[in-house]
């Protein structure tokens, strides 16, 4: 889980997909169906001619190829590339460092920051000591400005998820008592290669 803006991801896919569909379909029609080909040719010819007129009209003084139109098109293309780079750069992220940040209400005494490491030590070590749990990790997340603790547990095969959830819930309740604050927590119970390979029970029953 991270802060990737899924709306942006899906918008990129949708817009690119529609452009490809429309372009592909138009090209197929234009090449296989004479009338569509005529429409394609006349439409593109007139727009290319319009662009050429604009190109000549906006030439920089004293130059033969350098026009404002060309500069504008190049700028738009660069802008598109930059936007795509920004989208890529903003993927991921959203990992916080604290599971709880509480600002001081009265003086500095009430300010509390609980770092991910603290919660991780407190929870995952206790959890991993348990027989039915193969691994436990704690991550701090920031979702819309709120710190959320994400506990990721991989139980042994054939363990009831309700049981695991109850165990984790009890530990979180303990931690909440310890720090005296509510800790918004998301618990993920995962299966993975480790749970598939590990035997059902560590010892024969």
């Amino acid at each position: 889980m991270n802060n990737t803006n899924r709306g942006v991801n899906r918008t990129i896919l949708l817009v690119t997909g529609l452009v490809l569909i429309v372009g592909g379909a138009a090209a197929i029609l234009a090449r296989t169906w004479r009338e569509a080909g005529d429409v394609w040719s006349s439409a593109l010819t007139s727009s290319v001619e319009a662009l050429q007129r604009l190109d000549t009209a906006s030439l920089l003084p004293g130059l033969t190829q350098t026009s404002w139109l060309g500069i504008g098109i190049a700028a738009v293309l660069i802008a598109v590339a930059v936007v795509a780079v920004v989208v890529l750069a903003r993927l991921g992220g959203g990992a916080g460092h604290a599971v709880l940040t509480s600002d001081a209400e009265r003086g500095a005494r009430d300010a509390i920051v609980i770092e991910q490491g603290f919660a991780s030590d407190a929870l995952s070590q206790t959890l991993e000591r348990r027989e039915e749990i193969l691994s436990a990790r704690v991550r701090a997340r920031r979702i819309r400005g709120t710190d959320v603790m994400h506990v990721i547990v991989t139980p042994r095969k054939n363990t009831s998820p309700a049981e695991v959830a109850t165990t984790v819930g009890a530990l979180i309740a303990n931690l909440e008592t310890l720090v005296g604050r509510d800790l918004p927590t998301l618990v993920s119970i995962k299966s993975g290669i480790r749970s598939r390979l590990a035997s059902d029970q560590s010892r024969a029953a």
């Binding site: 054939n158 363990t159 998820p161 984790v168 009890a170 918004p184 927590t185 998301l186 618990v187 119970i189």
Partner: peptide, 23 residues
């Protein structure tokens, strides 16, 4: 997503399947 005391819990289908099979 399952509702247990821990609050919001998201469980892989495979975990549910193996727990059901064991029961």
């Amino acid at each position: 997503a399952i509702q247990v005391s821990a609050g919001t819990v998201v469980v892989d289908n495979e975990v549910i399947a193996s727990a059901l099979a064991e029961r």
